[in-house]
């Protein structure tokens, strides 16, 4: 039956196809509109914005708002710009993502390949932690951080995010490793490799796709978190809190162009992670869901 060569789910004529693409294009433009507004207004002098037209291209191009947002803008009471907070965020995000991903991988490895009595219960409880709203844990978390002497510090924030992230990372790695043949683990055991050797030499080298999923997920969540940062950040608040303080300041002139630049600065790292690793993201999420 050669006639059924192009047997897609929906067969479409040329006209419908053009129509579909037009609609898609329209939605894409609409979706990109906020980014356009942010970008365009972050390179204008403030007078052009207050003058009225948010949509127009700038008459005078300037990078001063970016420089101001980065290093001189008033954040709360200090004119430091977003720079120190950006550093805080990096210092918090990198260890938190690394630790929660590694612990998640180890959990997944144990829950699938070193099973023990009650392991499904342990996994069930970890899954349950994914559904606990942030607000519920605020007060107990504050108590714990206080007792540990980590309140208002970057290590404290790292601990909070690691604890909160382990549920998700465990879920990802467990499901990924569940599809990994157990015979390989047994072969490695006979070959004389121990618990950690099997993990480093056999399992981790094939965990690329799911590691990407875990890193992207954790990175965006931790970077974008506001509640924990505002509650437990103390003197080392992350970028999101600083951005809020910049934008919400109630004194002086509202420098919209600086605000726009600051908002883009705050979003850049997550954008970067998506662009670098994004194509592995879908691949990793799909892994194991289809047999073969």
């Amino acid at each position: 039956m050669a006639a059924v060569a192009q047997d897609t789910a929906v067969s479409t004529g040329r006209v419908t196809r053009v129509f579909i693409y037009l609609v898609l294009l329209l939605f894409a433009l609409f979706y990109l509109l906020p980014l356009y507004v942010m970008g365009i207004n972050s390179v204008k002098p403030l007078s052009e914005i207050t003058g009225g037209n948010m949509m127009a291209l700038p008459q005078v191009w300037t990078l001063a708002p970016w420089a101001s947002a980065w290093s001189t803008a008033q954040i709360g009471v200090e004119p430091t710009g977003l720079k120190p907070y950006f550093l805080n965020s990096i210092l918090m995000v990198v260890p938190a993502v690394a630790i929660s991903s590694i612990v998640g991988a180890l959990n997944g490895y144990i829950l699938t390949k070193w099973r023990f009595r009650g392991d499904t219960w342990v996994f069930g409880l970890m899954l349950f932690s994914c559904f606990i709203p942030f607000q519920i844990v605020l007060i107990p978390m504050a108590v714990v951080l206080g007792k540990l002497g980590l309140a208002g510090s970057v290590p404290g924030l790292i601990l909070v995010h690691v604890v909160y992230g382990i549920g998700f990372t465990t879920l990802y790695f467990r499901n990924y490793y569940a599809a990994f043949p157990t015979e390989l683990i047994r072969a490695a055991q006979i070959d004389g490799a121990g618990f950690f050797r099997i993990f480093w030499r056999i399992l981790l080298p094939v965990s690329g796709p799911i590691a990407v999923v875990s890193v992207i997920w954790q990175f965006t969540n931790i970077w974008n978190d506001f509640l924990f940062g505002a509650s437990f950040g103390g003197t080392s608040q992350p970028m999101t809190v600083a951005l809020n303080n910049l934008v919400q300041s109630s004194t002086g002139v509202k420098e919209y162009n600086v605000h726009f630049a600051g908002a883009i600065l705050a979003a850049l790292p997550t954008l970067f992670v998506y662009i670098v690793a994004g194509r592995y993201f879908v691949r990793g999420l799909m892994a194991g869901s289809v047999k073969g």
């Binding site: 015979e183 047994r186 072969a187």
Partner: peptide
């Protein structure tokens, strides 16, 4: 332990380390 019995095993799926 399996590794100290001086045995070797060939598995049904061959169990070759893919990496």
């Amino acid at each position: 332990h399996a590794s100290k019995r001086n045995i070797a095993m060939v598995f049904q799926s061959y169990a070759l380390y893919p990496n």
